[in-house]
Amino acid sequence: MPPSPPPPVPQLTVWYNTKCPVCNAGIDWQTNRLVQAARAGVIVFRDINLEPEALARFGADVEAVRRRLHGLDANGRLLMGADCAIAIWHHTPGDAWLAALLGNRVIRPLTRLAYDRFADVLYAWNRRKGHW
């Protein structure tokens, strides 16, 4: 019997904080929308709390991922914050328009600013509530 082919290399691997109720709910909702892509291994969501050293080679620790989404594209390029969210939307059926709109070179700086402010507020809330 010939060996089975290796699993496909994900086009996007995303690390997030499952202990944050908002993050966890958002990724659950997104995963449900991406069922076909997730089953095919195109996109993978991983809990940084289970893999605290996963992004150490990029200088990203658990706290960095608790602050902002982090992901790796198929080429091993690190995506953080809004850039990671844009990559997720790019792979989500029906959301490519959102990725194109918020990820275009004119709007992307504003997208990053809005994402970072929201992430800062959410991070502070999680710390106050003890979601670690």
Score class of each variant (00 low, 15 high):
residue 58 F to W: 14
residue 81 G to A: 08
residue 44 V to W: 05
residue 64 A to V: 04
residue 40 A to P: 00
residue 39 R to Q: 15
residue 84 C to P: 02
residue 90 H to M: 13
residue 60 A to Q: 15
residue 70 H to I: 01
residue 37 A to V: 02
residue 51 E to L: 00
residue 15 W to C: 02
residue 6 P to Y: 00
residue 83 D to M: 01
residue 92 T to N: 10
residue 53 E to Y: 10
residue 74 A to I: 10
residue 36 Q to R: 15
residue 94 G to W: 07
residue 78 L to R: 07
residue 18 T to H: 11
residue 21 P to C: 08
residue 18 T to K: 12
residue 51 E to M: 07
residue 39 R to W: 06
residue 83 D to G: 04
residue 87 A to D: 06
residue 15 W to Q: 05
residue 59 G to D: 13
residue 56 A to H: 14
residue 13 T to A: 07
residue 39 R to S: 12
residue 80 M to G: 08
residue 94 G to Y: 05
residue 78 L to N: 05
residue 10 P to L: 08
residue 49 N to D: 11
residue 27 I to T: 07
residue 67 R to F: 13
residue 66 R to C: 06
residue 11 Q to N: 12
residue 37 A to E: 15
residue 77 R to Q: 13
residue 22 V to C: 09
residue 72 L to V: 04
residue 85 A to R: 03
residue 40 A to R: 12
residue 76 G to A: 08
residue 29 W to C: 05
residue 14 V to H: 01
residue 30 Q to V: 08
residue 61 D to H: 07
residue 45 F to E: 08
residue 74 A to K: 07
residue 20 C to N: 09
residue 4 S to T: 13
residue 43 I to P: 00
residue 35 V to A: 13
residue 51 E to G: 04
residue 66 R to E: 10
residue 66 R to K: 11
residue 49 N to P: 00
residue 68 R to T: 00
residue 73 D to G: 01
residue 80 M to L: 11
residue 82 A to E: 06
residue 65 V to C: 06
residue 63 E to D: 15
residue 22 V to M: 14
residue 27 I to L: 10
residue 95 D to C: 14
residue 83 D to P: 01
residue 41 G to M: 03
residue 67 R to I: 01
residue 30 Q to G: 08
residue 14 V to K: 04
residue 23 C to G: 04
residue 70 H to E: 05
residue 58 F to E: 09
residue 79 L to E: 04
residue 81 G to T: 04
residue 65 V to G: 01
residue 54 A to I: 07
residue 94 G to Q: 08
residue 16 Y to P: 02
residue 67 R to D: 11
residue 78 L to I: 06
residue 21 P to D: 09
residue 11 Q to R: 15
residue 60 A to V: 12
residue 37 A to W: 00
residue 16 Y to H: 10
residue 6 P to L: 10
residue 85 A to D: 09
residue 33 R to N: 14
residue 64 A to D: 14
residue 86 I to C: 07
residue 22 V to Y: 11
residue 72 L to I: 04
residue 64 A to L: 04
residue 69 L to V: 03
residue 23 C to Q: 06
residue 38 A to H: 12
residue 40 A to Y: 00
residue 18 T to L: 07
residue 3 P to R: 11
residue 71 G to V: 01
residue 87 A to V: 03
residue 89 W to G: 06
residue 31 T to K: 11
residue 58 F to S: 06
residue 46 R to M: 08
residue 6 P to M: 06
residue 93 P to W: 04
residue 40 A to W: 01
residue 4 S to N: 04
residue 12 L to M: 08
residue 31 T to S: 13
residue 44 V to G: 04
residue 73 D to V: 02
residue 80 M to W: 05
residue 75 N to E: 15
residue 83 D to Q: 06
residue 86 I to T: 05
residue 5 P to K: 09
residue 96 A to H: 12
residue 38 A to K: 14
residue 23 C to Y: 01
residue 67 R to M: 15
residue 94 G to M: 09
residue 36 Q to T: 13
residue 7 P to Q: 13
residue 10 P to S: 11
residue 78 L to T: 03
residue 76 G to F: 00
residue 85 A to Q: 10
residue 13 T to Q: 05
